[in-house]
Design a protein around this nucleic acid. Structure first.
Length: 573
RNA sequence: UGGGGCGUCGCCAAGUGGUAAGGCAACGGAUUUUGAUUCCGUCAUUCGGAGGUUCGAGUCCUCCCGCCCCAGCCA
């Protein structure tokens, strides 16, 4: 059957052609607008409040709210709360917080599928009266076997031909609470032999004696997703109901309900490929398991791909939006390289994050020709990408700390940091030369004795001599202690779960805690949530776990590190 | 011959019959007081495969191959 309201080919409109083909969904929207099939664009983001939103949802949110914005329509936030046994107020709250954080606003358009329970129920009776739905007493297990298989047709329930009167009576008594969970269901009467399993008399209502977060005990029967979704779209006047590919073969059912019910509008469903990322799991079910089994500290553990987790990790919402934009929207199954995500994060943070110095693994350095007790204040640039960020003072002294890995007693070929006899620059301070090494009884380097060149104040040599390396540092007299949490992928393989047991792929190295880090004093009063770049190390976000004894920072993402790559290559080769 | 969807560079992804965009990654090189950033260059004679139509095919036709989704009273 040809539906004249359904777009066939994108219409062209040379007059005000938008930047061509941003993605196929926008093409459809544009074509519908051009052809006058719809007035204002209405989309919707329909989360079920049974968990926290994750990066995959960000793609859907950006698509739905983005399209509404671009075409001057609006996007509804609609909670798909049709299954009270899984849904909780905590999730209703977190979802709203996360959508706002991502940068989108539903305005007055916040809805719940449960707002429509009365209408949905009335429409179900309508189907019953039309002979298109019946009450089935078959048990869940029996229903499953009778549904047939992918290659064999199903068998019709003996209750399939009950009279309208009997169905109406039974359905009303279901609603009245006369029957226990699972005793009966209301099913659509479609086609038990359909090749599309969704059309083999799908369930519309099931008995669930459970309190609902919003409707309380008002109901003991609840509509299924298939029955509730399209009708909710119609009630809200949604023009483009955009969902993921696995709902593709639900569309005939979606359309069936719309055609057979007295709905006030004719919405259309469109499907796009969901987002997958290497080394990452975007499945609410698995994420829930990680939280419940304590593999992570909670939904907002910075290792979690949840929006709450990424926020705590320090990922700016703009980076998420940029990432989603760069990935595009299509219908082909895809797994995006997590490097693309990290790139988007660095791109945003490079432009915005103030620079600070922090030593992750300190190595003591004594400047032998610097007088005991003398300090000197120098000027450090806050963000070379943003002159308006200004400068800040940093104080130098006789004893400082540098990064342990910035010194090697026996340096390999291309190492151009500090080693015995070699001169390097301390960022914004002086050139220093390593004169000797102090070791403990285990032969470990515990301290360097260096000298500085007073003429190189600020880091420039008046005689124009060059130095190969520039190191970050903190002064012993004013450094601030901190705990640093370094994160690695939660899973140890790019395709977690591909071998079956996803929990077996959990990485033992996803979290490394550094307790002895030292920060420059400018970081002392930093507010939780602030993101800075620790020069030469990476971007770090102040965590609310900070105590009076020590600040806590989460590493959002490291800087690109070509030296590490060179080393890895040398080791491997 | 169960139904549906999809196959363009290592990973995303434009392309809608006129002679393969872009991003990520990678690799060279320049600049650099972050081995960062920035910059410049290299990176698909070929679009899952085979036929066919056409002056011309990633785009149209036929056949074949491969991958994903569906048998919840989950969404």
């Amino acid at each position: 059957m040809v539906d004249p309201t359904r777009p066939t080919a994108p219409a062209t409109n040379p007059a005000n052609a938008p930047e061509p083909g941003r993605d196929f969904v926008r093409d459809i929207v544009q074509a519908d607008l051009d052809a006058g099939r719809v007035g204002a664009i209405v989309t919707r983001f329909p989360p079920e409040p049974n968990g926290y939103l994750h990066i995959g949802h960000a793609k859907s949110i950006c698509l739905n709210f983005g399209i509404a914005q671009e075409y001057g329509g609006h996007c509804n936030l609609r909670f798909d709360d049709t299954n009270p046994v899984k849904e909780e107020q905590e999730f209703i709250d977190s979802i709203q917080q996360d959508v706002h954080w991502l940068g989108f606003d539903w305005g007055e358009h916040k809805y719940f599928a449960s707002d429509y329970f009365d209408t949905l129920y009335a429409w179900a009776e309508h189907l019953v009266r039309a002979g298109l739905a019946y009450v089935d007493d078959t048990s869940a297990e029996e229903t499953r076997t009778m549904r047939g298989t992918l290659t064999e047709p199903g068998r019709e329930s003996p209750d399939r031909n009950r009279t309208v009167a009997e169905n109406l009576d039974l359905f009303r008594r279901m609603r009245a609470g006369e029957f226990p969970n699972g005793a009966r269901v209301l099913r659509a009467k479609i086609d038990m032999a359909a090749g599309n399993m969704n059309l083999r008399d799908p369930v519309l209502y099931r008995i669930l004696h459970a309190a609902h977060p919003r409707t309380g005990d008002a109901w003991c029967i609840y509509p299924t997703y298939d029955y509730a979704h399209g009708q909710s779209d119609a009630i809200e006047g949604v023009t483009h109901s955009i969902c993921t590919l696995e709902f593709d073969d639900h569309r005939p059912l979606y359309d069936w309900f719309i055609e057979h019910l007295p709905v006030p509008a004719r919405p259309h469903q469109y499907e796009f490929a969901r987002l997958n990322i290497t080394y990452t799991v975007l499945s609410k079910r698995i994420l829930t398991t990680l939280v419940r089994q304590g593999h992570v500290s909670g939904w907002d553990d910075p290792r979690m791909p949840t929006l709450a987790g990424q926020r705590r990790r320090g990922v700016p919402p703009a980076a998420l939006r940029e990432f989603v934009r760069s990935v595009g929207v299509a219908r082909a199954y895809s797994v995006v390289d997590v490097a693309m995500y990290e790139h988007a994060i660095r791109e945003v943070l490079n432009a915005t994050a103030p620079r600070r110095m922090a030593v992750l693994r300190p190595l003591k350095v004594v400047i032998e020709n610097w007088e005991e007790g003398r300090t000197e204040t120098l000027e450090a640039v806050n963000n070379p990408e943003d002159p308006s960020a200004g400068t800040r003072p940093v104080t130098f002294g006789r004893t400082i700390y540098i990064e342990r890995e910035d010194f090697m007693e026996y340096p390999p070929n291309r190492f151009h940091r500090l080693s015995p006899g070699r001169e390097v620059r301390l960022r914004y301070a002086y050139f220093i030369t390593c004169r000797s090494v102090v070791k403990n009884d285990r032969d470990e380097v515990v301290e360097l004795r260096c000298t500085y060149d007073p003429a190189t104040r600020g880091g420039d040599a008046p005689d124009g001599r060059k130095v190969r390396g520039t190191l970050h540092w903190v002064a012993a007299h004013d450094a601030v202690p901190a705990e640093l949490r370094l994160y690695n992928p939660l899973f140890s393989r790019p395709d977690p779960g591909a071998d079956g047991d996803i929990m077996a792929d959990l990485s033992p190295d996803s979290l490394e805690v550094l307790t002895g880090a030292l920060l420059e004093p400018a970081l002392a009063g930093v507010a939780a949530g602030a993101v800075v770049q620790f020069e030469r190390q990476g971007y770090f976000c102040a965590d609310p776990d900070a105590t009076p004894e020590a600040l806590v920072f989460n590493r959002t993402v490291g800087l690109r590190d070509t030296w590490a790559k060179v080393q890895a290559g040398a080791k491997g080769g």
